[in-house]
Design a protein around this nucleic acid. Structure first.
Lengths: 140, 140
DNA sequence: ACTATCTAGTTCGATCATCTAACGATTCCA
DNA sequence: TGGAATCGTTAGATGATCGAACTAGATAGT
């Protein structure tokens, strides 16, 4: 019951983006897009948020950089670090992706009723909050 | 909110099984264990239920057969087909897995309250039912 | 009854996403 | 100022998945 909707959202977003000209954007890239901050995020930071290893993030960021969705800039605060930041194209894709999610939520809300849907989201949020308090810090 | 719990359940079940002597059972194998019928299921059938390609199922069933969790028997009703059936070890693992899931549900229910948890499950079920009516048939 | 077509499972080859281990560069601290 | 921790990366491996092409068996149309 959790798994199917998760996969379907990913799939729908991917297809929706493809239809809007972002056809080189793969589902796994969404992990980055979801967590990246507007001012840019460090690799380590993204790894923590996505609960993935750093090499996995590097792999995805390499892809996204190659495809022109993100760029690496040196972090002025730390010579070792780099900030991964959305390019203009990346921002457009991110916006499009969020719109698609909103549309899916609207569609699904109609299926079981807006009120019940909101309740469900709220409860899922509470469970998530209970399992990963706030920022969410579990090293992997 | 959907993705994290999904992954966590998989991970916890895997670890729990490992602790009970089924340490060669990998998360992906769960896809089979979840859908296989007591009398045995065909490869094609499993592919439909899991919404995966046939080769992917064959790959997993090969693994599970090698590890002694399932066995292939000829389907008396169709000479081309084979039934994938749980072995004794498979049944034990399946039971253990279900117990672990029950335990996780109990733990999580405590986090947000049993009543709200039940409501959430019910709503998720309704959404799932609305998206994949009953048997669930979407070819891939 | 024969052939053409369809279906069940499999093999092959490729690809994607992910991991652990090891490494150079930089920063931090005692 | 020198040793330990941290940041990103590379290298190498593996798991899970797919599509295309194949074989053996079933089925339907003539």
């Amino acid at each position: 019951m959790l798994r199917d909707p998760t996969l379907t959202i990913n799939e729908l977003v991917s297809k929706g983006l493809a239809a809007e000209g972002f056809d080189d954007f793969r589902p796994a890239h969404g992990t980055i897009g979801q967590h990246i901050a507007d001012e840019g995020s460090r690799i380590t930071e993204l790894a923590e948020l996505a609960q993935m290893s750093k090499p996995a993030i590097v792999y995805l960021v390499n892809d996204l950089e190659q495809l022109g969705y993100v760029e690496r800039v040196p972090d002025p605060a730390d010579g070792r670090a780099k900030l991964v930041r959305m390019t203009e194209r990346g921002v457009r894709a991110q916006r499009a992706g969020r719109e698609i999610v909103v549309r899916i939520e609207r569609d699904w809300a109609e299926l079981i009723g807006r009120e019940d849907f909101d309740t469900m989201i709220d409860l899922l949020g509470r469970l998530h909050e209970a399992l990963w308090p706030d920022g969410g810090e579990s090293p992997r």
